[in-house]
Design a protein around this nucleic acid. Sequence first.
DNA 1: AAAACGGGGAG
DNA 2: CTCCCAGTTTT
Length: 354
Amino acid sequence: MTKLTTANKALCAWFKKKRAEFPWRPLDLFSKRDPYAVWISETMLQQTQVSAVQTAYKKWMQDFPTVQALARASEDDVLLHWQGLGYYSRARNIHKTAKQVVQNGGKFPSNRQDLEALPGIGAYTAGAILSLAFHQNEAILDGNLVRVFSRLSEWDFLPTKDKAAKDSYWEEAYNWANAGDAFLTNEALMELGRTVCKKTNPLCESCPIQKICKAFQNGRATAFPPQKQTRYVSWIGFALAICDSKGNFLLQSSPQSPFLKNQLTFPIFEYADAFKNIFPGIAENVISPENVKRFAFMGTVEHSITRYKIQCRVLCVEAKSHKGLPGSWISKQKLPQKIISSFAQKIVILTHDF
DNA sequence: AAAACGGGGAG
DNA sequence: CTCCCAGTTTT
């Protein structure tokens, strides 16, 4: 019995005993899971913390219980179910893939290549579906496993460093997947990373695989994996909430914005002088001064989107006519269902006093 | 290889 | 306030 096999047994025993209950986890640990449910939960969990996903997942599965039901739904409805999770391209890709899967007979592919050809399914999600749903010994690699592997071997590099680095991590992931039942091992490794082998304050004394962990033995767990530097960018600008006399608001996608590029929001601009109390000249790119009936500054919205720290002044404008104002005119009551992002929702609130 | 993509929550 | 989190796609 190899060292890894022994460690894997300890890991899985720990997982069976200590695992948390989640809506996407089957009561019977050994049952094969519905590939559709695995796909939805694993995609929701990408870059999103477990606690934030639970409510959205339950509602989703209630309203779209099968891939067929999802394929039939409207894009607006799908996005609405994704509200609050962020990375909305994930929802659009899911919708696309659902239609594709139904088109092809409603069965999910059961091999890596065909799965990864589907929109929104990459190496991680494909491995998750193959192992958790089909019980194949396929590997996964996510942030949790990277942290665990980095500490086990004291690897001072991330898989994003270069191809060799990526190959090392995936090779380790396959070693684990083949050490026992991958459907157990994969989830156990993620659970270990989430609850024990944490980024900060790791609980090494309760770790079931501390015997094979180099970083633990050297008391250097928190030195791994190496830190990646993120730099934040401050973004100052304003949003135009343009309405007509009946209370319809103009929504556009704002391609010149560095964020929320492909979704319906208020026109937004980066503008260093956004805090001057005048009608900003740049607003005239959207609406001509002759078409302005009245306008008012409503306040400032603060929000973070990926690396951008946003300070956004909100300017409400009543237009005399729709002429020369392309986009979608949405009634005030329907704004909350048409606007997906939390950022734009904050703007909606400020328009109430206009 | 690097940047883009969202939001909530922990510390 | 800063930082992190069950990745994928595009540039």
